[in-house]
Amino acid sequence: MAIIEIENLTYTYPVENFPALHGVNLRVEEGEWVVVSGENEAGKSTLCCIIAGLIPSVYRGKLEGTVRLCSLDVCQASRKDLIHRVGMVMQNPFHQISGGRFTVAEEVAFGLENLGVPRPEMHWRVNDMLAQVGIAHLARCSPFSLSGGQQQLVALAAALVMHPEVLVLDEPTSQLDPQASQKVLAVVQDLQKQGLTVVLVEHRLEWAAEFASRLVILEKGTICADGLPAQVFAGLAGRASGVHFPAVTLLGFQARREGLWPAGRPLPVTIEQAVRGFRR
């Protein structure tokens, strides 16, 4: 049973004339790590919002087709039911802070408070999560006094503390420096190994390809490629898709053209694969 099932989805924002997504089919199995990429305005964020259940409840508009999350119809489910199943972290760390809480601990607890979770349970869940994300030492700081990277870790903790089964990340590191990005992704990687399903929107495939079990490319609101990263890259070769190939993959292309890389062998996506491939 797939954890995310999207069938024949077409969605148009209110007031707009053209659909932001059309004819989208996507099945994601439990524990997968799907990386979504594509040029600007392709509909990546819209897809994230749909998986996170923000459409149509928050953004309204016209949605056709079905979207199921853990067998729950997203269009009919209440926020309360969805929130245990899917969490989301967005691009701008600052805008994700609720603003109504004065310490990091309370900020992370805000979602639990709103669900009426009893205080003792709230305390251990929050403390656990702060430790897991590595910001336990910031518990009593003001969320506004933190750096962007730390704020993004707070946003991550706030999403994970609800114990979701699916985590949606919409370019979570695009405003962070490499070090902070590493930190955020390390936490996600840990949890993914424990069974969390991850959908990550990322432009910089250079490093996203390393942990992606699957790569989905969106183009003008439709999925134009979907599969193992190496397959997707091979399929997209020579097309203007707005996708930035990792340098190793480009190296692989060149090597194949020059006869240094056998045609049958999958293209390298990581440096390791390239080295292994060349050694053989």
Partner: peptide, 9 residues
């Protein structure tokens, strides 16, 4: 962000 934190649930 508030919706994602079950505000007004």
């Amino acid at each position: 962000a508030l919706e994602l934190r079950a505000f007004r649930s």
